[in-house]
Simulated scan of single mutants.
Amino acid sequence: MELVSGAYFDGQAERSRLRLVELEGGEICMAPTEELIADRIGQWEASRRQDHEMLAQAAALYGLAAGLDDDYLDRRIRHETAGAHGMDFLRSLWS
């Protein structure tokens, strides 16, 4: 588990999308899957060596997730990649 301080996804993510997940002995606040996917693609885009593990993680999350908000996800991917990629790119990873 990682704990960070500062604004949630640099202030770009909608806090209303956070979810409380009950675990044995308490609750933790989880980021929505859309944020995790967009973050992985953004990390890949920002890296000089473009580590394909980041894309593999994004594709796996996309493939496993249910009920994603595609419009929100597209917006977040576009923000994280400075407009270079969107949902079409993500779908191409999964197909």
Rank of each mutant, 00 (worst) to 15 (best):
Leu64Ala: 05
Leu61Asp: 12
Ala58Glu: 07
Glu53Gln: 11
Ala31Trp: 14
Gln57Gly: 11
Glu34Lys: 08
Ser16Arg: 13
His52Pro: 00
Cys29His: 08
Leu36His: 14
Leu90His: 01
Ala60Asn: 12
Glu34Cys: 04
Glu22Ile: 01
Glu80Trp: 12
Ser5His: 11
Arg91Ser: 05
Leu55Pro: 13
Glu35Cys: 10
Leu36Thr: 09
Gln50Pro: 03
Gln12Lys: 07
Met54Ile: 08
Leu73Tyr: 01
Leu93Asp: 02
Asp39Pro: 01
Ser47Ala: 15
Gly67Lys: 04
Asp39Lys: 15
Gly25Trp: 07
Leu61Gly: 12
Asp71Gly: 14
Leu64Ser: 11
His52Asn: 09
Arg15Pro: 15
Ala60Gln: 12
Glu24Gly: 04
Glu80Leu: 07
Ala82His: 03
Gly6His: 01
Leu23Lys: 13
Leu20Ala: 15
Asp71Cys: 06
Met1Pro: 12
Gln12Val: 05
Asp88Glu: 15
Leu90Gln: 05
Gln57Ser: 10
Arg17His: 12
Ser92Pro: 13
Leu23Asn: 08
Val4His: 06
Ile41Val: 05
Leu3Ala: 03
Arg91Lys: 13
Arg40Lys: 11
Gly63Leu: 07
Ala13Gly: 07
Arg40Tyr: 05
Glu45Arg: 08
Phe89Gly: 02
Asp69Pro: 08
Ser16Ala: 15
Arg40Glu: 10
Ser47Glu: 15
Ala58Ser: 09
Leu73Met: 08
Leu64Cys: 07
Arg15Gly: 15
Val4Arg: 04
Gly86Ala: 01
Arg19Ser: 13
Thr81Glu: 04
Ser5Met: 06
Leu20Ser: 15
Glu34Pro: 11
Leu90Thr: 07
Gly83Asn: 00
Asp51Phe: 01
Tyr8Phe: 14
Leu64Thr: 06
Glu14Asp: 13
Arg40Leu: 09
Gln50Met: 04
Ala7Arg: 13
Ala58Asn: 10
His79Ala: 10
Glu24Leu: 11
Arg17Phe: 14
Ala46Glu: 11
Leu73Val: 00
Leu23Tyr: 14
Ser95Gln: 08
Phe9Ser: 10
